[in-house]
Design a protein around this nucleic acid. Structure first.
Lengths: 333, 333
DNA sequence: ACGAGGTTTTGAGACGTTTCATTACTGGCC
DNA sequence: GGCCAGTAATGAAACGTCTCAAAACCTCGT
């Protein structure tokens, strides 16, 4: 059905080895035969059989991308970066959603091992990377995504969440706010903890009254409810930092319902700068993470490790977030 | 490095063929040897070499998913559905963003052909499916995603956009609205055209004044600008249907800026029911598409074609959208 | 004890590449 | 004309799996 190198060789009256050379080492075949072979390839519409190649090579130009949930806008953007870098280098991306479940993650790692993928990019569901050690030992290039490297056996790429928290708080302090509420999410999420640390760092040098509110989930309705409750018990900050944009949206709803104007009465800073932040009723000031770049860089890292394992040194790349100021924040009244 | 069937065979003192049978036809191996082999497998941590399998089989349990942009929430959800169905059947998904560019699409199709993937799910960048014919002829199971089948050579899975438009308009008509604005997007987008057709269908049986506004893009700011302009030239509908939720969000902003209340002065219906619709300043009534189900069904279709090509009959599956009523629509004053 | 008939197991070949040691050419030089 | 040193092209082996015809092993019944 599909043409193979054998067919090409026959048509060009040449040996299979020569066809292989035309494909992989063109410079070592004479221009005359090269032409002949290339013509045969075109005529037959020959396309190399990747699995055969992979079998021979022992591993493939495939990147396994394991994320908690591609539907999370953060990872969606990361995936785009990964894919673009991969395509550039002739790699292909296998998408794996772990749903934060160790079982699913394990299952996927098994599949990826079976596929003998050349590289894996993963945001691990659990702390350690034990299940990865075996892959690494077998020569798979691995990098940790949005996760600080707890190991010296792999690269890691992350965003400085503490800095992000600091930026958010400093922005408000610079505007004169001295009574700030921190709308946190579940404290067992490392990103939330880091952002909080950054906020503390920024506030400790100024006499700021910092109040902490905890939402049960990172959703708009959880934010709405948490702020509602806080208002009911008399909280009256002049500004608020939220652990992510969805919480911020919920917070805005609750505040507006209570008759407060944004930013005149309360300033709000979100986190993530999701697409929607700019389109909200009051465009949201937010901390943006270089998501695409994160994915792109991570992919480049594992690709370079794949290309030349000996010349590769594992590294920890840490990106810097950036605050995007919009209309939801203003000077204190 | 990695154990192969040969190693397993040696350890279990059995032939390679027997190991293969334990893996693929366990029932034709005596329990005793089967045990022995399984133990050897466990002991060596043997994981089958997928590329070798694929080489032998001629094609692989891989689904190539080609979409315009995974960052588009619609396709993100579709992808989740595809992935879940794939995983269930032991398939793996290769992610390909075409960016609506024919060149990128072609390139990916070439790569997928090279990988000898067993199935392809695609939202084609251009009208025809010429570049796919070759794949289909070679026995790849192909299905068109969110695209009506213009061919009898492949399955297709889509959502009835005309029905969606009709649902939106009927909802408003049912609330008593007789002066409705249709905020369209670029008319060369088929989905926009279909939704419009549905709106026309719904309105023609009632004496409704339908005004059409065209936004240059499907974004919040384009919607804001278009509605701004329409208001300036004196448009005063009591309700509005928008080609998607982002346009609706933009429209709401423009209307509120002009001092109108939603839904008291103007009712708004969006389309897509993106996550954010429920969290907007005024929660948005919107038309929801079964995105996850779309992807899941499409994947199942190609998987079944892969499993048994002869028993497979190509089909066109068409899903029905659903209107989700929230606070942005109300009875006419 | 033998053979028929059934159940297990074996072994070789093929899938499409790449690699690498050989062999076959080429032109230049004495 | 014969030889040398390159340069080009060849052919066989190997990667890990599956398949299928053939061989080996049982279990009965006679």
């Amino acid at each position: 059905m599909t043409a193979s190198m054998k067919d090409v060789a026959a048509l060009a009256a040449v040996s299979i080895g020569t066809v292989s050379n035309v494909l992989n080492n063109p410079q070592m075949v004479s221009p005359k035969t090269r032409d002949r072979v290339e013509q045969a390839i075109a005529q037959l519409g020959f396309i190399p059989n990747a699995p055969a190649r992979q079998l021979r090579a022992g591993r493939s130009k495939v990147i396994g991308l394991v994320v908690p949930d591609i539907a999370n806008p953060f990872f969606t953007e990361v995936a785009r970066g990964v894919e673009d870098a991969a395509m550039e280098a002739g790699f292909v991306v296998i998408l794996c959603n772990s749903d934060e479940q160790a079982a699913r993650e394990d299952r996927y790692l098994r599949v990826l091992e079976s596929q003998r993928v050349g590289a894996i990019l993963i945001t691990p569901a659990r702390k350690g990377i034990k299940p990865l050690q075996r892959l690494i030992a077998n020569g798979t290039a691995v990098a940790l995504l949005d996760h600080e490297g707890g190991t010296r056996d792999a690269c890691s790429v992350s965003v400085d969440d503490a800095l992000g928290g600091q930026l958010a708080a400093s922005h408000l302090i610079g505007l004169g706010h001295r009574s700030i509420a921190w709308l946190a999410g579940p404290p067992d999420i490392p990103q939330v903890a880091d952002r909080q640390a950054g906020i503390l760092r920024a506030t400790e040098e100024h006499s700021v009254l910092l109040e902490r509110i905890v939402a049960g989930q990172m959703t708009a309705s959880a934010g709405d409810a948490a702020v509602d409750a806080a208002l009911a018990r008399g909280m009256t900050p002049s500004a608020m930092v939220c652990a992510n944009d969805l919480l911020a949206i919920g917070a805005m709803r609750a505040l507006m319902r209570a008759g407060m104007r944004i930013p005149q009465d309360v300033s709000i800073v979100g986190y993530d700068d999701i697409d929607f932040a700019a389109s909200a009723a009051v465009p949201l000031t937010s901390v943006r993470q270089p998501k695409y770049e994160l994915g792109f860089a991570a992919a480049q890292l594992v690709i370079s490790e794949f290309e030349d394992r000996r010349a590769h040194a594992h590294q920890r790349v840490r990106f810097q977030p950036q605050i995007v100021v919009r209309e939801s924040t203003g000077s204190v009244a």
